[in-house]
Simulated scan of single mutants.
Amino acid sequence: MNEHDWLGERFAEHQDRLHAVAYKMLRSPSDADDAVQEAWLRVSRADHSQVENPAGWLTTVVARVCLNMLEARRARREEPAGALPPEPATPQASISPSGPADPQDEAQLADSVGVALMVVLDTLTPAERLAFVLHDVFDVSFAEIGTVIDRTPAAARQLASRARRRVQGAAAASDAARSRKRDVIAAFLAASRNGDFTALLALLDPDAVTGDVRGAEAVAAFFSGRAQAARLALVDGVPAAVYAYRGMPKAVFTFTLDHGKISCIAVDADPDRLRDLDIVFLSTGNRV
Rank of each mutant, 00 (worst) to 15 (best):
L277C: 06
L70N: 08
R166N: 11
A55L: 11
L121F: 07
Y245F: 12
Q168T: 14
V61F: 07
A55W: 11
A251H: 10
D196S: 04
S161F: 10
V21R: 10
V252N: 05
R180N: 00
E9H: 14
D111I: 13
Y243F: 12
Q92D: 14
R180C: 03
H259K: 11
S174C: 05
A266C: 12
Y23V: 02
R246W: 08
I279T: 00
D236Q: 01
V115H: 09
H14C: 03
R157G: 01
R226N: 10
A240W: 07
V119E: 07
R76G: 04
A143V: 12
R10W: 10
K181S: 09
E9Y: 13
V119R: 10
A266S: 12
L124R: 04
A107V: 14
A89M: 14
D16Q: 15
L117I: 09
V213W: 00
G215S: 04
S283I: 00
T147Y: 09
S112H: 15
A241M: 00
N194V: 03
L201H: 07
G195V: 01
I95E: 12
A177I: 00
A155Y: 01
D272P: 04
D111S: 14
D212K: 07
S141T: 06
P239V: 02
L124H: 08
R42P: 12
Q228G: 05
G146T: 05
